[in-house]
Simulated assay, not measured.
Amino acid sequence: MVDLPLPAERPLQQLGRADLGAFTAKVLFDPSSYIGQRIELASDAPTPLGMAAALGAALGREVRHERLPLGAVTNPDMHAMWAFLNGPGYRVDILSLHGVHPDISWTRYSDWAERVWAVAR
């Protein structure tokens, strides 16, 4: 089960660590191209239903999303984060970002799940 305090169809933008590393290296090797820019990054934006399906495929068994009520998140920092993600959330233009930086592999959530969880089968 995937317990998240998000609606089933709400995209959750995420960034793979390898993608962050590759982008950071790109900036470090050519910093002059990025001076004065603010670039927000995201690799993928799966919905909780999509995450459950990807995890289920990787594990070879059913995984369901169950929406956790936001009020059940009692840690103030975590509550603030989930409130933000339920509100405006992140707004990276993923298609444009990936188009401008095609040299980054941009890991899809389903590929990550397969790589990480297929060994658990």
Rank of each mutant, 00 (worst) to 15 (best):
M1S: 14
M1Y: 11
M1P: 08
D3R: 14
L4W: 06
L4R: 02
L4Q: 07
P5F: 07
P7N: 12
E9N: 13
E9V: 09
R10W: 01
R10M: 01
R10T: 00
P11N: 00
L12A: 04
L12R: 02
L12N: 00
L12M: 04
Q13G: 01
Q14L: 15
L15T: 07
L15I: 04
L15R: 04
L15Q: 06
R17A: 03
A18C: 05
L20H: 10
A22E: 05
A22C: 05
F23A: 02
F23S: 03
F23E: 01
F23C: 02
T24W: 14
K26E: 02
K26M: 15
V27M: 08
L28T: 04
F29G: 09
P31F: 02
S32D: 10
S32C: 06
S33Q: 12
Y34R: 05
I35F: 06
I35L: 07
I39N: 13
I39R: 09
E40L: 13
E40Y: 13
A42V: 03
A42F: 02
A42W: 01
D44V: 11
P46W: 08
P46A: 08
P46G: 06
T47D: 03
T47E: 00
G50A: 09
G50V: 14
M51Q: 06
A52L: 10
A52Y: 08
A54P: 12
A54Q: 12
A57T: 01
L59P: 14
G60V: 02
E62C: 13
E62I: 14
E66K: 15
R67G: 13
R67Y: 07
L68F: 07
P69V: 05
N75A: 13
D77H: 05
D77I: 07
A80Y: 10
M81N: 10
M81T: 15
M81C: 12
A83V: 06
F84L: 11
L85P: 07
L85Q: 13
N86V: 10
G87E: 01
P88K: 13
G89T: 15
Y90G: 08
R91D: 14
D93M: 12
D93A: 15
I94S: 08
I94H: 05
I94A: 13
I94T: 09
L95T: 14
L95C: 09
S96N: 13
L97S: 01
H98P: 02
V100I: 07
H101W: 04
H101Y: 11
H101M: 02
P102C: 03
D103Q: 03
D103M: 00
S105Y: 03
S105L: 09
T107I: 09
T107H: 06
R108G: 05
Y109M: 08
Y109V: 08
S110P: 06
W112R: 06
A113I: 01
A113G: 08
V116M: 05
V116W: 02
A118G: 08
R121T: 03
R121H: 06
